[in-house]
Amino acid sequence: MDLILPVLNSITLGSLFTLMALGLTLTFSVTRIVNFAHAELVAIGGYVTAVVTNYIGLSIYESLVAAFVASAILALAMDELAFKPLYKRGSPTLFLLVASIGIDLVVRFSLFLTADATGNIIIQTKVPIQPLMPLGKTYLTTFQVVVIPLTLAVVVVLHALFHYTKVGKALRAMADNEDLARVSGIKIYTLRRLAWMLVGGTAGLAGGLWSIYLVIDPDFGWNSLLRIFAASILGGFTSFWGTVIGGYIIGFAENLGIATLNTWFGVSTAYAPLISFAIIVAVFLIKPSGFAGIDLSSLLAKLRGLHKNLEPEAEG
């Protein structure tokens, strides 16, 4: 079979999943919240992009900026209205997860209500995707040329932000130990706001891009959530680069993977979500830290059979 098309599709979807999952990873690493409402940040991004492009007539780039801003505001509102008050009260993490389910219901069905009332239950951003250059039997399109570098750019920017700026270092300090960050004079609530805006923004951007690629409905965020979680969990829920690897693994698994299973074993492509689910369960049970937990040097040492010679460090 011709591999170029499924590979290209896998990479495209992998990029989108990565972009969607980065925010979830960021949320968990900074706030320890398992946020099911993340799906709606993606969904709102998709709808804002589609509506701004189709009805207001702005360019796609302006629409994507609008999606970024809208989802960032929504993310901020989620935190200010629900998560932060609960967190301040010392609610258990499971309460925050339950609250995120509540938020998800409110946003998702508000979106349904509005979309239904205005006749937009199904919508797609009207931007023609044009072929750029032939690639085997298929074409590389304008969409892919934008999405793939854009995803990588976002990852690089986030990585740089977290590793080379003062703000990012403070965020990481907060992720590691909030109490310590607090006493060392870091303004944790300002940082928290910034983190939520980045979370919302990237999710909104991802949703916007998705709405160009495929038709969306108000459930599309929720329906993507399994993949988003799988990608993020592959990254140990805390690692950006792990999430990137995770995103592309899911992209490939749900395209090339299920297509292969379909061709060779007759497995229905409708079972694609099972792959993501199996990945989640496997990571949880076998290696909850995902890719983030794999220490490359010790892995290499193990491969070379040297681990027996490695003395445990004598520490105090």
């Binding site: 629900a82 609960l86 339950v98 609250a99 509540g102 409110v106 069905f109 349904f112 209500l113 239904d116």
Partner: peptide, 16 residues
């Protein structure tokens, strides 16, 4: 839709 919006609101409000 309103039913589920209210369900969500109930969950959040009770927790808060």
């Amino acid at each position: 839709y309103i039913k589920y919006i209210i369900t969500g609101v109930v969950i959040i409000a009770i927790l808060l």
